Computed example of a mutant assay.
Amino acid sequence: MSLEKNVVVPRTAEGTLGEPTTVVRDAHRAGLEAYAWTFRAENQFLPAEHRSSADPAERGDLAAELDTFLDTGLDGVFSDQPGLAAEAVAARR
C-alpha cells in the first residue's frame, strides 16, 4: 500500500513531526507492505525541525526526516530526489 507521508507521521500545528500512527503496523499485520510518498529535500516540504533556513528552495535535512519515517517500519519511500533518499536508506544499514 502507498500512503501520503502525513498519514504515517502527521505534522503538528507548529509544522513539526508528530507521533507516528499505527498505519504501518496495521498494514504489516494485514500482510501488506507499506510505502510513503513524497519526500523532498527542499525546506518548503520538510518539517520545521529539519529545515536548514527560512529559504523555501534551500535543501534541508531529508535524511533526518527519512530516519523518522523509516523507524515506523516502512518498506520503502518515494522521493523527488531518489539519489538522496537511497543514500539515507543505505546509511541506516
Rank of each mutant, 00 (worst) to 15 (best):
L84W: 12
Y35G: 01
D75R: 07
A54H: 02
A54T: 12
P10K: 09
T12L: 06
L3Q: 04
T72G: 08
A54R: 13
W37M: 12
T72P: 03
L32Y: 14
S79D: 04
D26E: 15
V77P: 03
L32K: 13
A63F: 02
R29F: 00
F69N: 02
V24E: 10
R25W: 02
H28V: 10
Q44T: 07
E42H: 04
L70P: 06
A90M: 04
F78Y: 09
F39P: 06
T16S: 14
F78S: 14
A91E: 12
H28Q: 14
L84C: 01
L70E: 03
V23G: 13
M1R: 09
A91Y: 08
V89K: 11
A30R: 15
T16A: 15
D71M: 02
Q81S: 10
Q81M: 03
E14Y: 01
E49A: 08
G76S: 04
D67R: 14
R25S: 13
M1S: 08
Q44D: 03
T38C: 14
L62Y: 00
R92F: 02
S79K: 08
R59G: 09
A64F: 01
A36T: 04
G31T: 10
E14K: 14
E65T: 13
V7W: 03
D75V: 02
G15M: 06
G60I: 07
A90D: 13
E65Q: 15
G31R: 07
L70M: 15
A64W: 03
E42C: 03
G18W: 10
K5G: 13
V23P: 07
L17Y: 02
G76V: 02
N43K: 10
A63S: 14
G73H: 01
A27V: 07
E42R: 15
A64Q: 06
A85S: 14
V24D: 11
R11G: 06
A30P: 05
D61C: 04
L46G: 05
R40P: 10
A63M: 01
L46Q: 08
E65G: 04
G31E: 11
S79H: 09
Q81T: 04
L62K: 00
R59F: 07
R51C: 09
V89P: 00
L17F: 04
F39G: 03
S2N: 12
E49Y: 08
A54K: 10
A34D: 09
K5S: 08
A54Y: 01
G76T: 07
A64K: 09
T68S: 05
V89Y: 04
A34I: 06
L70R: 12
V77Q: 09
E19G: 03
V89S: 00
A13F: 00
T16L: 04
V89C: 01
G83E: 15
H50T: 00
L74P: 02
F45A: 13
T16K: 15
T22Y: 00
T38V: 08
E58A: 15
